[in-house]
Design a protein around this nucleic acid. Structure first.
Lengths: 195, 195
DNA sequence: TGTACATCAGTGAACGCGCGTTCACTGATGTAC
DNA sequence: TGTACATCAGTGAACGCGCGTTCACTGATGTAC
């Protein structure tokens, strides 16, 4: 089976990227091998190198794709500040906690990204800036730059709280982390609502 | 060389734990093999199993030890709320960012801990509660329970900000994340200073 | 329109390597007599 | 006090395994004539 059209190759590449995104977020960057990942995508290991130079190349691509998607998803939220409140509730939900494969790449992978290649860190950096831009623009539409600090505070708190809730051995404690995180998130939003 | 005293065995075990703590925080839990780690501790791979049942056992032990040490270190800070301000500054310093092996285990490993065995998550949970207790007690000495939410907000924001600063490809951006994180941390502390 | 050829995505076995773990062995020390 | 023995932390080679990567090959399709 071979010699397909460019659209077919693009579709296969996209399928690998999306499968890898799910697996990486579920099992970690080191916890997902190429062979398993390709089998998940309905292919064999050898085909991988028709699409990517190396695993590092895939990681950088996936990280860029995941963060770009997350930034774009802000467009689906209710407009303005209300959208951020909805985001806080969705982000710190049990569904998000229990399904990392469909969730935030930062919550699943951020400490590992700090140990990755320069290309991966660059892809992450670009994507994170886009996300912080989205948050800032909703906090202070007339002067987004002034809300950078608040946006960063909200984002890092959410990421830390989700990681913490996933690390809790006890479900009640984990739920409490989510609930208190939501309160903190809304407080951070409220603290700037008059500006 | 063998048949040493109990103190010798305890010292060796401690040396393995401390070497592993540094390596795990530097290269990740999956990025540090037993053989390399034991060589770092001045031993050969086989000796490992005279001290631990498995790598999972070591990970759980190290996570517990690291968090316990971090909780204990709050005792070295200036008393009261001023100690928390000092903690925020130290935590979000370039030295901490650039030396993960000597730094916070949560900043280095939290998303990986969420994928570990129940024993490791339990060790993390216990240690994290001790840390949150230390922070709460300084925020509201007369009623620590009331400051739980603020303590959690501060801790998760610091962890998220440190991970983010380490993931930035650009040094200036990384420095900006630290600086804005410090402002956010002090704001969180200030918001509860009247209660 | 029909035929010969070039392309290249995908196959699947194989590469060397490091992983976590096992195991027969060593030999300095503590204990028993 | 001197001797024989048991202990067990540590050694280092080996185990099977999965890793990332390579490679000779396949065969359906697009292109050239």
């Amino acid at each position: 089976m071979a010699r397909y059209s460019q659209e077919h190759k693009d579709a296969t590449r996209r399928r690998i990227i999306e499968t890898a995104g799910r697996r990486f977020k579920q099992d970690g960057l080191d916890g997902s091998g190429i062979a398993t990942l390709m089998a998940d995508a309905g292919l064999t290991n050898g085909a991988f190198y028709a699409h990517f130079d190396s695993k590092d190349d895939l990681v950088a691509t996936v990280v860029g794709e995941e963060l770009g998607r997350q930034a774009a998803e802000f467009g689906e939220l209710p407009p303005g500040r209300a959208g951020l409140e909805a985001f806080v509730h969705e982000y710190l939900s049990p569904q998000h906690r229990d399904n990392p494969d469909r969730g935030c790449p930062s919550a699943a992978l951020l400490d590992e990204i700090g140990r990755c290649t320069a290309a991966t860190k660059q892809a992450y950096t670009d994507g994170a800036q886009a996300i912080l831009d989205e948050i800032s623009a909703r906090l202070a539409p007339e002067d987004p730059g002034s809300a950078r600090g608040t946006a960063l505070s909200l984002f890092t708190m959410l990421v830390g709280a989700m990681q913490l809730s996933r690390a809790m051995a006890d479900k009640e404690l984990s739920d409490a982390v989510l609930a208190e995180g939501i309160q903190s998130g809304l407080t951070i939003l409220a603290a700037t609502s008059t500006s």
